[in-house]
Design a protein around this nucleic acid. Structure first.
Lengths: 202, 202
DNA sequence: GCGTCAACTTGACACGGTGTCAAGTAAACA
DNA sequence: TGTTTACTTGACACCGTGTCAAGTTGACGC
């Protein structure tokens, strides 16, 4: 009968060491070639002990993203755009927050994205996160709509779909890593693109 | 000493059966879970014989894309936009041709895309194809520029990067498969988006 | 008819990474 | 003292890719 115990089974401390190791490796390698045994080694435990905490690679990856959010305060940052006065400002603020956020999560995102094609659990986890991010897009578009500043070109749902797609991590990857755009350039252009497409003229 | 032989080693007929089988499976399964043994079985040969023709999975996949292009006449279709009179028409025509082309190559594209993260050969093959497609984007933007109709918002290179990114297969996938857009809707919206962003006002 | 060569066959096997199983250890606790 | 918890070591199954060796079959030239 445990009393003074650490509230949760399996030792929280070790669990955190695992998550920290996982995150570190994922960030360092941009998601490539990170095996369970690598993570175990860095966490200072045996590979098998890893499975006592996370029964599957996908599960560990998912837990790592949650851990990352906890550390970086994702939700706070992405919802800070709510304080904006106008819809236009809100759109800008959201793109700004998201644009700065991407590089921080890129490593783990890449790993999850790679698993998405083969592992259902990973796919679901990833889709959940992206759905949350889509909510942010939706909120920004609705703010525009409330201000009566949404371009008549698109119904709100379509504008949301488009904005969401525009801001995808794959697109960030292509523009910055493949095309060599700087982080500032990416953010500026995305803001301009969004403004021009979703904000009513004049 | 071969004389009446089939001009190439390893029997062209079998090779074609393999490519046909590969393409069929890739299309049917959208790129997922297609193993070498599946392809061999469908082609009516042993798994080992497959390796006599293609020494690696990546090599087979790449050959399959070339085979697909041959069948569908890719180059012709994508360069047909060259006949357009104005830059604006050319941009539309290119988006139209590409938009109709994507669903036809999606299965194999998805398979190659999944390998891109792990296999260097696959990554290079894919990047080559996408570079070719980028040339088309560049040509369209340059046609606009020649007509003095390119929006002053973007330098031509940036416009090319953006258009290329906008028309990525991942974006098509997200809008049609995830968001449920129809093929027509996708093409129409992409045209509208491109027009609004890259063509000078009024 | 004889050899030979090319295209294929069967069957075995190595490798890498994930996930499982069984048995043992070491410290914490009652 | 005995029990429980968190871990250890070591072995192993599975899957898919790619390799190797030895055999079969048919078409060819001579």
């Amino acid at each position: 009968m445990m009393l003074l115990d650490t509230m949760s089974s399996k030792n929280t401390e070790t669990r955190n060491r695992i998550l920290k190791a996982s995150l570190g490796l994922l960030e360092a390698s941009q998601g490539k070639d990170v095996r369970m045994s690598d993570i175990a080694k860095l966490a200072g435990i045996s590979r098998q002990a890893l499975y006592l905490h996370f029964s599957t690679r996908a599960e560990l990856l998912i837990a790592t993203t949650l851990y990352l959010d906890e550390i970086k305060g994702t939700d706070d940052r992405l919802t800070s755009s709510r304080t904006a006065e106008t819809g236009q400002q809100r759109l800008d603020a959201y793109i700004d927050a998201w644009g700065h956020y991407i590089p921080e999560i890129y490593g783990i995102a890449k790993a999850l994205l790679a698993m998405r094609d083969t592992d259902d659990a990973a796919a679901e986890a990833w889709d959940n996160r992206m759905q949350a991010m889509k909510e942010g897009c939706k909120a920004a578009i609705e703010a525009l709509s409330r201000d009566n500043m949404l371009s008549p070109d698109h119904p709100p749902e379509d504008a949301t779909d488009l904005l969401w797609t525009l801001l995808s991590i794959r697109n960030w990857e292509q523009l910055t890593l493949d095309c060599g755009w700087s982080q500032e350039k990416y953010i500026d252009r995305m803001k301009a693109l969004a403004r021009r497409n979703f904000v009513k003229d004049e």
